[in-house]
Amino acid sequence: MSAWAVDRPGPIADGPLVPVTRPVPAPQRHEVLVRVTACGVCRTDLHLCEGDLAPRRRGVVPGHQVVGLVAARGEEVTGLEVAQRVGIAWLRGTCGECRWCRSGAENLCPSSLYTGWDADGGFAEYATVPAAFAYPLPDDVPDPQLAPLLCAGVIGYRSLRRADLPPGGRLGIYGFGSSAHVTAQIALAQGAEVHVMTRSRDAQDLARSLGATWVGDAEETPPVELDSAIVFAPAGTLVPVALAALGRGGTLALAGIHMTTIPALDYDRHLFRERTVRSVTANTRADGAELLRLAAHIPLDIHVTTYPFDSVGRALADLAADRVTGSAVVTL
């Protein structure tokens, strides 16, 4: 099969992602083999290729927003059928026994494994996944619109929950890429007032078209105090900016797996009056299932730019240069 693998991490312009030919993987007893039909392109893939997120093994195939069809099943698999449409997300394995797994916080499992980092992902014609971590998908939504939900959507949804937005509250969103444009629509559907701060003019236009109350530049101060905020951009310099925009008792969620250095915080300006900062570490399977149920009832408008399979590198380069508005998806 054809695939794209990380050879030597470095700037995306230097071509760290290279085409390779490999055997079609055989599913283990508890796994399914998936014929990939689409795979979303995530900023985490970019961090992996460029070395901000160190690859856990050389030659790993990135891609963790995978839509495809079950092509084969391991002998212990039940509940999934050959030719069934499924999704593969970032979290692909946990121990199931530690105190985090037992408490419902499996995303914090010290033994957790990840698609496109520990195991080969969806920038390939085929991928495997443990059946317990595969998501059954509806048949009536096009592949490119489903793929971003499997990371951008579910991480945005978890970030929204971590931001502790009160009913009808004011939410600030910093950065307006794939995850943010899905999260904004969920918050709006729940009755929130959404304020978007982003440097991209195209992203600003998209935010307005989706119903944002106010849109400004990345470090601009919104016209009202915020109840909650989410920083999606991997820029640590935005953390004090977002904290300063929060009102009393406000909560800031940091959505990225990687972020540049956060500047020193001033206690009175950024933290006093019971402001809270929370990070977001992957997602649980329950988060994914809840997001997919929500998506079936909320008319989400997923803005997608599609790329052919032989243009994965171009998709990542466009993402690095902020040339993608909404989500980038590779189709096979």
Rank of each mutant, 00 (worst) to 15 (best):
A295D: 01
C39L: 06
D268P: 00
P167H: 07
H270T: 10
V66L: 05
C109M: 04
L294P: 01
F133Y: 15
T261M: 07
V86C: 11
V215T: 07
V66S: 12
A124K: 03
T213P: 15
A131C: 11
L300H: 11
G172Q: 10
Q190K: 13
V330E: 08
A233V: 05
A296P: 02
R161M: 08
V280I: 01
V241P: 00
T78E: 14
G121D: 03
A245P: 01
L113N: 02
A54I: 02
T276C: 10
R56F: 10
G63L: 00
G250R: 08
V231E: 03
S178L: 04
A38Q: 09
L69Y: 13
S209V: 07
Q84T: 11
T284H: 09
L332H: 14
G10C: 07
Y135W: 13
L210M: 14
V182Q: 06
A152R: 04
R314N: 09
V32C: 04
G156Q: 03
H195F: 15
M1H: 13
E274Q: 11
G68H: 03
D301W: 05
L188H: 08
D202L: 06
L292P: 00
G10N: 10
V239C: 05
A229T: 09
A203V: 05
A328I: 04
V32L: 06
G216S: 03
I186Q: 02
D202V: 04
P308N: 10
S228Y: 04
D52S: 12
L108R: 14
Y114V: 00
G40L: 06
V34G: 03
D139P: 06
W117L: 11
A317H: 06
C101V: 02
D318W: 14
F123G: 02
V182R: 00
L171K: 07
D45G: 07
I155V: 15
A187Y: 10
Y267W: 10
N107M: 10
D217G: 13
D120C: 11
S2H: 12
C49I: 03
S112F: 10
A132R: 08
V329D: 07
C39P: 02
Y267V: 08
V20R: 09
G191S: 04
L265P: 01
T281Q: 05
S159G: 15
E106G: 12
A229R: 09
W100C: 07
G175K: 06
P16F: 14
V280W: 02
G177E: 07
A233L: 11
I88D: 01
